[in-house]
Nucleic acid binder design. Structure first.
Lengths: 269, 269
DNA sequence: CGTCACTTTGACCGATTTCAAGGCTGGTGG
DNA sequence: CCACCAGCCTTGAAATCGGTCAAAGTGACG
């Protein structure tokens, strides 16, 4: 599971122990126990409130349900798709976390996105038929797969599916990229604060804890995502901890002063 | 017109004179003389190769043509829409240039986009029904307006319109934001080089000159767009000029060594 | 127990920002 | 026609933030 790796470690830590890691990133009270099963359907999935099937009519949901696929969950480090693979489907994270990235000619890796349960990925390449990025599991992750040819057909018959898809595309533009956009001229501290508050909000909207969680990304990846280097990231975490705004121990984070963190980030439009 | 303001000024400049400013940012050889007229249609518009009506069938174009509006051209500084206005339509720049931006609680302005002839704007707010940004004419600008309710209906009947719209949304995500994304850890020089080569390519694809043009944005705006300050921008322009890569005089730019500029930018994925 | 990946910390350096001043340009009104 | 003003652009000097290089600590795993 998500926290497995850290619990043993945390027990050894003196002051930092007792973070309640065992509660981190676990879903609260699912309406029915489908989690863990590879055969799910949207009616019985706690994600439908956020995923592609959100706010579409009953009939539309049945349609989606008809062609949805559930590939086997991938372990940490395995790829859902790679740069230049054919674009064949859109995906929704069911559990775990996924990062997308690309590697340029110089061999440098750029993190382009991080996706949490209920969030849709795979849009890169929707227009050109080939993926621009690679998508990799950050933890053991299960997903729902929506074949694009099926999806495109459904959109023609069911306007609400089309509307929802368009809505998601727009969200992809604004909720994900715009925080980064407006982050360009901000300090390392502001960027990290923005990253953490954003992450917190997204976890909460999937029914997870807003103040205690594990970071899906390593320091290096967060740094890359925020346009900084590993060392700066580490120093910035340390500074926020010294100021009692967060407590961090490796991947686990407790936000102890969310208002302060939000005040630091302040870049909503 | 676009260059009117600068020509007189440039005549006074000694060494910098003779830039051919009168050729800047003017369309080359329009197929028919609709430019300047407020009543246009897509069949007779030189933009159809790039705008929303690109690569849709004959019948679809007639449909678009049926509900397209042409509001009066706005002068520099006037707004097409403002933050929080209701989202009612998508727009395509016909002539001139448009910037989108927002102002946060602290009163700081963030440039979110710059749109040239043939490019679509107004997507901000498509999902939430209210505009997140303001859109302002950078010069006297005319646009085509596609009412969204009409557009949405057309999409249902004409899959190629839907496909084109989706394509444009994806382009909005990737062609516009991703260069900036990968620009985060680059130097001021690389960022400016990327900005200029990108601008050059976009102007060219609308039939304008790739090497001689006027900057639609002020130094301050370019700086904001690239995550830098005005002074750094100015210094960077000076440095590129000293190295004979560009010649600049206020808003007018001549790229004298495009390969060198492209070599500096190198941040395609 | 050793290795490896990840993280933290320190010292130094350089690019960009900040602060400050001055120049240029276009518009306004006398 | 000229003086003045405001906005935009440029340049210089000093300060600061983040990057680079180097070293050491930590936990996971075989």
């Amino acid at each position: 599971m998500y926290t497995q790796a850290n619990t043993a470690a945390a027990a050894k830590v003196k002051i930092k122990a007792g973070f309640g890691l065992d509660k981190c990133n676990k879903l609260q009270e699912l309406p029915c126990s489908t989690r863990g099963s590879f055969k799910q359907n949207c009616n019985c999935c706690s994600m439908h409130i956020v995923c592609l099937a959100k706010s579409v009519g009953e009939e539309s949901r049945q349609v989606l349900n008809g062609f949805i696929q559930h590939p086997r969950p991938l372990r940490k480090g395995e790829h859902f798709y790679r740069q230049n693979d054919d674009f064949v489907a859109l995906y929704v994270v069911n559990s775990g976390a996924v990062k997308t990235y690309f590697i340029n000619q110089q061999g440098e890796e750029y993190i382009t996105g991080m996706y949490l349960p209920g969030e849709l990925f795979g849009v890169d390449g929707m227009d050109i038929g080939r993926h621009r990025y690679s998508a990799k599991a950050l933890d053991t992750s299960s997903i729902c797969e929506f074949g694009y040819s099926n999806l495109e057909q459904s959109c023609q018959s069911f306007p609400d599916i089309q509307r929802r898809l368009t809505e998601i595309l727009c969200a992809e533009i604004f909720q994900k990229q715009q925080p980064l956009l407006s982050m360009r001229q901000n300090s390392a501290e502001q960027r990290l604060a923005t990253f953490l508050t954003d992450l917190s909000a997204r976890l909460q909207s999937s029914g997870l804890s807003a103040t205690e969680f594990n970071l899906p990304l390593s320091r290096r990846d967060i740094a890359s995502y925020l346009g900084l280097v590993e060392e700066t990231m580490s120093r910035t975490f340390s500074r926020l901890q010294k100021r009692q705004i967060v407590r961090v121990s490796s991947r686990s984070v407790i936000i102890t002063d969310l208002p302060a963190l939000q005040a630091l980030s302040m870049n909503r439009c």
